[in-house]
């Protein structure tokens, strides 16, 4: 990780801070091997693992997102990698809980592991196939941090889609309403909750992108809800 340490100080600090506020769940690699069956349809791991529908997962800890040569990653995840997303215990946990919350345009069509213990177990299993553990702060407890510990009151806000439509004018300078995603991801038809979680992750500088951190940074909770309501069902 030293290679990227200059890029991500805020996000790393924020992730570490977030992690401290979470409960500690120890992972069981043996049980994780069983949970991994849900992943095995697309991902291989272990000796001789190859890229299949998804990239192989040997050495995934400490790897930059979209770093493997020769795998046709989505633009979204390539962008996330370029922005400094490194696969760590925390980022992987957030990703496998709900891939689109962390990387909106990912091709990984996986609903996510909702149970904290399942995620801890599968990450403990994957951890055994990463041969450079020095990249991970192993000495610290393997507590889980995600970027979506949002206050349920924030998620419960009903957005005003008319206000959202007006606010969306700022988004559509870059994000195309027809869903085109060249260079910049599509945000049309996002589920409202994913949208709210993602925008708050930018606002809190957990997601690493300076434009989005700035844009989200000045939106109120109500405005984020309004945008989510609009983009979930644009006219």
């Amino acid at each position: 990780m030293p290679r990227f340490s200059k890029l991500l100080p805020l996000a790393l600090v924020a992730l570490l801070a977030a992690r401290a506020s979470f409960g500690e769940v120890a992972g069981d690699p043996e049980r994780g091997a069983v949970v991994f069956a849900k992943c095995g349809g697309c991902h291989q791991v272990g000796e001789g693992a190859k890229n299949r529908i998804g990239p192989h997962l040997n050495g995934v800890f400490g790897r930059m997102a979209a770093e493997l040569e020769g795998f046709p990653y989505s633009k979204s995840i390539k962008r996330a990698g370029a922005d400094g997303l490194i696969w760590t215990r925390e980022t992987l946990d957030a990703y496998i809980e709900n891939p689109r919350v962390l990387v909106s345009g990912t091709r990984m069509s996986f609903r996510g592991l909702k149970k904290e213990q399942d995620r801890a177990d599968v990450l403990a299993y994957l951890r055994t196939f990463s041969d450079d553990p020095s990249n991970i702060p192993e000495a610290e407890p393997t507590a889980l941090g995600t970027d979506h510990d949002l206050d349920p009151a924030i998620l419960a806000i009903q957005g005003d889609p008319e206000y959202g439509e007006y606010l969306s004018n700022e988004c559509t300078t870059c994000h195309q309403t027809d869903g085109a995603d060249e260079g910049i991801p599509s945000i049309t038809l996002w589920p409202e909750e994913d949208f709210v979680v993602a925008m708050h992750a930018y606002k809190r500088k957990l997601r690493p992108h300076p434009v989005m951190q700035m844009m989200a940074g000045r939106l109120s909770d109500e405005e984020i809800a309004a945008l989510a309501a609009y983009f979930a069902k644009p006219e």
Partner: peptide, 9 residues
Amino acid sequence: EESVGWYAG
């Protein structure tokens, strides 16, 4: 690449 996307947008 982002700038190319912005141009289209």
